[in-house]
Each structure stands twice: as structure tokens, then as C-alpha cells.
Design a protein around this nucleic acid. Structure first.
Lengths: 237, 237, 237, 237
DNA sequence: CATGAATGAGCTTTCATTCAT
DNA sequence: CATGAATGAAAGCTCATTCAT
């Protein structure tokens, strides 16, 4: 791969975007250019990976020029990091918008599950980009100051849900929010991320609408069972 | 990515390798060269992906020459497909070696879980290569005649285990072997595959020995609960 | 290289700079910008050559913008020519300030030598820029109307010194001022200009203070000998 | 300029060339390719400097391909260093071929002078390449293990000449061989290297055949005078 | 006048692949 | 079968320069 160790300098227009000061036509056009590049890059890196994603392909898809990528993001890697940051930002934002009825923990739990499942389904780029980043052992994300310092809103929310549920005797008290969150994520993510090799491996398509609905129900059921209180579930001896 | 649409014809030595007929010194040396390339390619594709893996890097790591890759595998893509085939072959072989005590379904279930988890842990290349292939939407695996026609031995085995368990009232009868298998796979695969981004996202390392042991136990517990018979688990309404 | 054949028209502010008429605040600021660019360009062209000197590097070092270079100098080449003109102007100016005591020709000669040697030592950019221009076969200097029409003040001065010295029997009469001037220049320029390759070639540093002082004395001695009258120097047969 | 700090790996064919082992047709053709590139690079770097010399221009002039430059020399910088090494090698070789009649020190001295002057005249690339390297402060030469460890053959030869001359009372004994060598080099090198700017500066061409012959004679005369023994030259007080 | 964005040509370098012994 | 040289397309990136406020 050969990724330069340090991403180069900042994007001038970005600063303006943050301060929000300059709102002229030029600045708006510049922002539009930057956004177009970021969107195109998200799509193309998601489809081809970091190495497979071509700079020219991105700039063309953004109806801009290679040069602009370096102008705004410094390097291919800088652009890739920006894509990851935006990815996390949007995901956190979506999780933050989750409005849960804490008075009904069981329903709230189900909503978290369905939100996660649907987020993965509607944002396939989220999955492939994270896989690409894991292929690189998180090398790029580690360089980003904006990612990872704030833990997931959903984990925190889930913690509250569990707390209420335990208090009402609906859930057992020994499962942590993180474990439950990872269980939910794992079941959804793996199924969708690996659908191509799984289909080949199992010898049948697993991404038909019926199969997807079946799996979604299985997730809900499994998570509920994982949280069932001791009096309703006696561990098999 | 730019992958040639059709992989070219196989190399003659490959036939020999399969039949195992020619056992002369040259044939053995040839087989050694081919194997070295395959091993090097597995390592390097796993580390850098298909696009990121360089032909020269592979041939050097195999202490051979670029030319040999084309001789034995026709193209970079042909080599990559061979890597995938070998990957599946070994995995199937390992699953086939699973000796389960069907008289003790619960214990057999646990063994399947631990086998899967340990296979993923000990073969990190298995995970990254599958991710890479899923990035490509299974394009290469679809070209391989040797992969996917025989469904997983583990799913079949698991089917038998479940059958016995249900017969003895240990497991509920409404979960299919495939669902259980996917649950087991999902929990192990996702956790290990995504450990870099998860660590960044959650703000703490999740791949310490303690955390790994904790997750393994959580998988066992969760799968058991997913299979708990109706009389011990009343789904929360 | 790829230098446009014709340098474009000069910037308006340049005219102002020369006439010095407009003395408003803006004009002063403009002059400051122009000067800053010229100084930065001198430094950077001296360090990296014409091709190696980057426009952006210069504008940044001048705390200005690329655009300003084109505004004031028309092109990179125009800026480079302006640098050369300034270089010659300053050198001529310095030579013109030489106040020689013609009553003591021998002392005056020594002063010319020491002036030249010190000018080279204190203005290393002078040397590298001239070398760069010679690499280009004087292409740019030929385009400048302000360089080369007035011959060197020092050569003229040296002519007077020699004349006096010959009249007094101190110098021989067969050496021209130009030859003596070139001898002085050659010994100083070559030693300083080539100190890096010479050090490598000779296997020892030649730019220590001791070595420099030694060479300076050797120049003085050599030039004196070159001018020694016939009665004191009989050419070796 | 931005030169990579470390030149990359070696050229395979070069090793063969040194061992002289493989003398097949392929090896000879390879050597021819390498030599053609080296020759073309010498010419083009001499004409345009390191930054101004384009890789494509070189490969085309050598009737080869860009790729081959990287195959044999690793990088543009590696090629440039190889050019410098060859330059030094040839110069040392030429100096080594100097056959001096030590029985006639004065004649031998003149031969050294004429050899140096003629070498510069006939190898203008020698001068411009050294200037380019000095522009870079000897950065590349410092990386070469083959340059600079063996001091100049001419300096050693000159030392012997002087010794004999002093013994016979032809030369003074206070000038070192190095000083005399540098004087000879300076007068020739400077005159030829700076002929373009000097012509502009002095207002007349200095590279006509007549002027060149005049300067050559002046060098001989000046060096002789620099070596004249004390009894024939009384320094003007 | 200053400033940031845009432009497209062209740069060095790398790639997968093939040729020729 | 092995080996080193050759090939040409294309990659990431940089450059001088111009546009538009």
C-alpha cells in the first residue's frame, strides 16, 4: 500500500466552513466542491477500498479535478481519513437522534436493534468502509483526532434502557450495555457484510427480502433471550 | 480495481499437483515453488487486500519470480482465486475434523462454538481475506468451481446436534441450524474482524486476553439462551 | 525546463516603484510586497535553482500570494530575471563604492582583491545564482536590458590602478585589467563555488577559517606575482 | 527540490557488469541499455540541472523507457548519483593517464595545465554537472561511497613535479601542490563555467578562439610566476 | 490590491504483465 | 523451469498559471 506517514496540511475552505464566517458565493461554491469530492470519495472507497479507489475516478465523479483533492485534503490518504471522519460523524449523529421511550425498556431495546439493523442496511458504505479500515488495522482512524474520543451515544442510551429494564425485572442484571450493543451490531453487521461469501458458502442467497426479515426477527429474539431475567431462563445444565 | 474479466488457463504443473503423479525431483521442486507462492500470496493479500497486494512483493516473499506467478496461476486474479480456494478447503477440512459427542448435545454445541472462535483467532488471514472478497461482492469466489457447491460440514453437524438436543428437551425446536451457525459465526467474526475500529469507537482496547475471554463466554451464554426451550424462557412480551 | 519564450509585460506598480512618484500608503505597501517577493525569490532561486525554486514556496516565504508574483513580475521567469537584475545592480553598486588610493597602486590592488573575495564570501547567493544562470547559458540575462550594457566599474578602476602602477614601475605593462580582474574573480569564485565537490574530491574540508585565510593570502600573492615587472621576474626558461 | 533521502536498491545488471561473469547476449544488451541511459542522463542533467532534467526526456534520448531508469537506478536521484560517479571515475582515469616527464619539471607543469584546460574544454558536461552538485551542497556526492575517498591523481603527480622543480631550483618551495592544482583548476574552470554571465558582464564575448587561446597562455604564465623561485621574483613591498 | 479557488498539463514513480533466453 | 530484461499504461501527485471576486 505505501501510505505516507503524515497527512499533509489542512484544507483552507474547511476552516471557513467551521467558523462560518465567509458566506459569499465563492465560499459556498468552494464548500460545494469539497462536499462533492467527499461524497464521491465515500462511494468509491466503499466500492473499491483504499488501494482500489482511484483519485481520478473520484475527481471525475465529483465533476472536479485531481488537483482539488490535493488542494482540500492534501493527499489520497487525507481524503480517506476525511471520509472516515464524516462516516463516524453521521453515524453518531444518527444514533443521537434515537428517541427512546425509557418507560418501556423492552420496546426501547427493540428500537435500538431495528435502528442498528436498518442503519446497516441503508448505509452499505458504512460497512465496507469500516472493513477497509480494519484491513489497515485502524491505521488511519488512529490519525484522526475527531474520531473515538467520544464513545458511542447508543451504548450510553442502551445503558439507560438496561438499567430501567433491570429495575423493573424485565432484564437480567449481569449483561453490560457494551456486550448487548456488540451482540446487536455483530448479528446485523456480519450478516450483511459477509452476505456474498456466506451465500457461496451456504450454497444459497441469504439476502432475499424474506431471509433478511427472518434474520431481523432472529436478532430481536436472540437479544431478548440474552437479556431474559434468571427466573424465566434457567441455563441448561 | 481493474481486474481482467476472464482468468486465463491454468498452468500445466497444476494438473500434476492434483494428480500427484509425477514425483520426480523437478516436479517436487515445482510443487514447492507453487506452494511457496500460494503461502506468500495468502499472507500478503490478507494484509493488503487484492489491490494493495503487489505481485512483486509476493514473488519475493516466496523467493521466486513474478514470472512464476503467471506460469502457475495465469494472473494476479488467478492467484487470488487460488488463495481463496485453499482458504475454503482448509476451513472445510478443519470443520470436518470436528469430532462431536452427539450423546451430549449441550457439550457438542459448546465445542462448535469454541472451535469457531478459535479458528477465527488462530487464522486472522481467514477473516481479512473473506472481508476483501466481500468488498468485491464475491466476484472471484463466483468464478471458482471448487467453492460453494458443498455446503458447510459444520452446519450439517450442528443440525444433528440440534436434533438430538431437541429430542431430549434440551433445546427449543424452532431455531434452524443455519441460524445458530450464523449466530456463532457472527459473534466471533465481527468481534475479531472489527476490533480496530471498535477499539477506536468504544475508546478502549477490546482485544486484551481478558476481554477476549469475556466475549468468548458471552458467546457461549448467548447461544445457549438462543436455544433454551420454551418452558425455561418466556419471551418478554 | 519549459520557460515561456517571451516574458510578459511588466506590472504597473513597477513603474511607480521606479519613478517613486506615488507615495501613498497603498503604494508603499505595494512596494513592500514587491520587495518581499524579490528577496524571497533571491533566496530560494539561489538555494534550489530556477527549476527547483517553487513559485508557491517563494510567495509563502514572502508572506504573499502566488498571484502577486504574476501581478508584479508577469511570470516565474520574469521574477527570476528581476532577481538577476537586482543581483547585478547591487554588485555594481558595491564595486562603485570602492574607494581606492591611486597613489598607492599596490595597496589599491590588494583592496580590490580583498573586496572581491569578501563580496563572494558574504553573498553566497551571488555565486549560486550566477551558476544557475550559466547553466541556462545566460538565456535570461540576455533578455534583460538593464544588465551588461555598462561594463564593470571594478575593471575600469583596476585599469587605473594598473596604469599608475606601471608608470611607477611597480607592475609589468603587459597584463590587461580584464585579465587581472578575471584572475582575481576566478580564484575567489571557484574556491567558494566548488567547495562541496572539492572537499569530496580532495578528501578534506577546504572551507575552515584557516583554509579560507590561507587561500585569500595565496590569491594576493599570486596576483602580485602575475603583475611583477620583468626585472624582478625572469620567466623560467 | 524534494529529493528522497535514501536512494533505493541496486541495479541487478550492474553487479553482473562488475563481476563480468555473465557475458551472454542478454547481459550485453542489458548493459547497453544501462549505458545508454547513463549517457543520456549525463547529457541532460548537464544541460538542465537535476530538477530541470526530465526522466522522460532521458529515457527517450536513451531509446528506452522510464521504467528502465527505475529498474537500473532505483530513482531519478539514483541515476543522478550514478552520473556523478561515472563523471568522477572518468576524470580520475584521464588524470591517471597523464604521462609526465619528471626530468623536465617545467614542461611537466605546463602539461598539467594544458591537460586540465583541455579536459574542461572538451567536457563541458563535467563543469555544469559539478556546478549542479555544488548547488545541492554536495548532497548527492556525499551519498556515494565510490567518490572522494581516493584523492586526485593529478595532485599527487603535481606534488612530484614540484619536488623535482624545487630540487633543481626551478620552483620556489613554499607553494603546496594543492594550492597550485587549485589555481590551475580555478583559472580554467571559472573562465569556462562563467563565460555566459561574464560575456554579459564585460560586454563582449570571451569564448572566441582567440580569447580562449589568450586565456590559456595567461594561465600558463600566471602559474609559472606563482612558482617562480625567490631569487627571480621579489614581491613588491 | 489582495485573496482563495480553479485549471490542466506534466511530473516521478509503480504496476501487472510479457519477452527472450 | 528458471531468470532477468523489457514494456506501456496508469497511478498519485505537483507545477505554473489564471479566474473570480
Amino acid at each position: 500500500m505505501s501510505v505516507p506517514v503524515v497527512a499533509r496540511a489542512a484544507a483552507p475552505a474547511r476552516r471557513n466552513a467551521q467558523t462560518g464566517r465567509r458566506t459569499g458565493i465563492r465560499a459556498a461554491a468552494a464548500q460545494a466542491t469539497r462536499d462533492a469530492i467527499l461524497r464521491a470519495a465515500t462511494r468509491i472507497f466503499a466500492k473499491h477500498g483504499f488501494d482500489g479507489g482511484r483519485v481520478e475516478q473520484i475527481s471525475k465523479a465529483a465533476k472536479s479535478y485531481d488537483r482539488m483533492i490535493y488542494y482540500y485534503f492534501g493527499s489520497k490518504e487525507g481524503l480517506y481519513i476525511a471520509v472516515l471522519e464524516e462516516l463516524y460523524r453521521k453515524f453518531n449523529e444518527a444514533e443521537s437522534r434515537l428517541a427512546l421511550d425509557l418507560e418501556r425498556p423492552d420496546k426501547a431495546l427493540e428500537e435500538v436493534i431495528r435502528f442498528t439493523w436498518n442503519y446497516y442496511r441503508r448505509n452499505p458504505e458504512f460497512i465496507t468502509l469500516l472493513n477497509t479500515e480494519n484491513l489497515h488495522r485502524g491505521r488511519h482512524i488512529a490519525k484522526s483526532p475527531s474520531v473515538g474520543q467520544h464513545s458511542s451515544p447508543a451504548v450510553r442510551l442502551l445503558g439507560e434502557v438496561l438499567e430501567r429494564g433491570v429495575a423493573r425485572g424485565l432484564f437480567r442484571g449481569t449483561a453490560t450495555a457494551r456486550d448487548v450493543y456488540l451482540l446487536i451490531a455483530a448479528m446485523g453487521y456480519f450478516y450483511l457484510s459477509n452476505r456474498y461469501t456466506l451465500s457461496a458458502f451456504l450454497g444459497e442467497r441469504i439476502d432475499t427480502p424474506e431471509e433478511l426479515a427472518h434474520w431481523e426477527a432472529f436478532i430481536v429474539d436472540t437479544v431478548r433471550r440474552a437479556l431474559a431475567p434468571p427466573d424465566v431462563l434457567t441455563p441448561a445444565s
